[in-house]
Design a protein around this nucleic acid. Structure first.
Lengths: 204, 204
DNA sequence: TCGATAGAATTACGTTGTAAATTTATGACG
DNA sequence: CGTCATAAATTTACAACGTAATTCTATCGA
């Protein structure tokens, strides 16, 4: 019998390939990177990646999922870190979100890239995206358990998510001019949310 | 002497080409559309578009600029329309923004597509994008002139912009699950902004 | 009528994603 | 210990792409 790839071998190669792809994406832009470049960076032939991924779209989905996973990890670490009080922990989670986005703009753009047509075809991506956002909801549920927040944790979590995501995307789209930037807008939006203390969906 | 294209001829052909390209983009996705398809839809040869646009990127920039222009027009119409009171006019402008985005999701995605590397190369696009956002600031300056708002119009305009853009982008990225949607989040964020009445950049 | 020439069409080429065919290397078995 | 079936990798091949270079066509001043 010939050599057989263990599931571990497969996973390891996929990791290496995604690492290489991610670097190339960040360096040259997602569209400019070819399968041939990725294969060459790994020292394998052009067709070898096809043994590990269905096609180029599957590679893109895998890289996006990995970016979401790293993002989720940053949030989870912030949530797990010691904090003097719950408010400080809230701020730490928000700061971790923003820091990840601004320090890894190419990864963040990729995560929320709106072109992948049917994300349902890539369950790994969907799971990673859910995991990332779940931390924010979980933190609000912590606050609720401590009696510091009463309301719809999912809804309010999404409000804060949108309050971070909107400014970040405007900045990454190149549409903010000094002195405006994502941080300044996020400060205003989160201050407004905290002050208004919205807890339930408001009727339009 | 041979036939000579007047500037009007050129402009007319560009319009026709952008119309065709936009339809194809919305139908098949931006990436799947080829120059050959666009040319064929116009009944011209493959290379004819190159007489009117430098390359494919220039076509994309032109289509994006046109989308921003239509968006700006929708906002300007809402601002110019009669309204019972200033608050109603504010709501009408916001509603026009959201309606455009949700009724033309492909156009909206294109406008804020984060891939075009150096938008500075396309001054028409930059101008259209500025025009779109200027309406919101202008409306706040109207309010200020009437004594109904005192604060940094540019900053607060951007706060509302981000409060609309964030939820819309989350929805268009396919990351909102029922019962959550862009409208519900926008209602919460704009309610918070109105209630908190932020007027100046808040210090982090 | 005719020829110079702007604009359109045709041809051509390098590159892409990937299907199909071929080669290579492994490990159980006579 | 060689041999062979076969998984994995490579090589080859091809249609389609963006676009440069070339050729054709139709117009208008002479």
């Amino acid at each position: 019998m010939p050599k057989i790839l263990t599931p571990d071998d497969v996973e390891q190669f996929r990791e290496r390939l995604c690492d290489a792809a991610e670097h190339l994406f960040a360096q040259h832009g997602t569209d400019a990177v070819t399968i041939r470049q990725i294969a060459s960076a790994l020292g394998v032939s052009t067709m070898t990646p096809y043994r590990y991924f269905k096609d180029k779209d599957a590679i893109l989905a895998a890289v996006r999922a990995r970016a979401f996973d790293r993002h989720a990890e940053a949030l989870e670490n912030a949530r797990a870190a010691p904090a003097p009080d719950p408010e400080a922990r809230s701020n730490a989670i928000g700061a971790a979100y923003v820091r990840f986005a601004l320090e890894n703009p190419e990864a963040y753009k990729l995560m929320f890239d709106v072109r992948q047509p049917s994300e349902g075809d890539y369950p790994d991506f969907v799971r990673a995206a859910e995991r990332s956002h779940a931390t924010m909801t979980a933190h609000l549920e912590d606050l609720a358990a401590e009696g510091l927040f009463a309301g719809d944790a999912d809804y309010v979590g999404h409000l804060y998510w949108a309050a971070l995501h909107g400014p970040i995307m405007l900045q990454l789209s190149g549409l903010l001019r000094p002195p405006l930037d994502a941080q300044t807008l996020i400060a205003g939006l989160t201050a407004a949310l905290a002050k208004a203390n919205i807890t339930q969906p408001v009727s339009a």
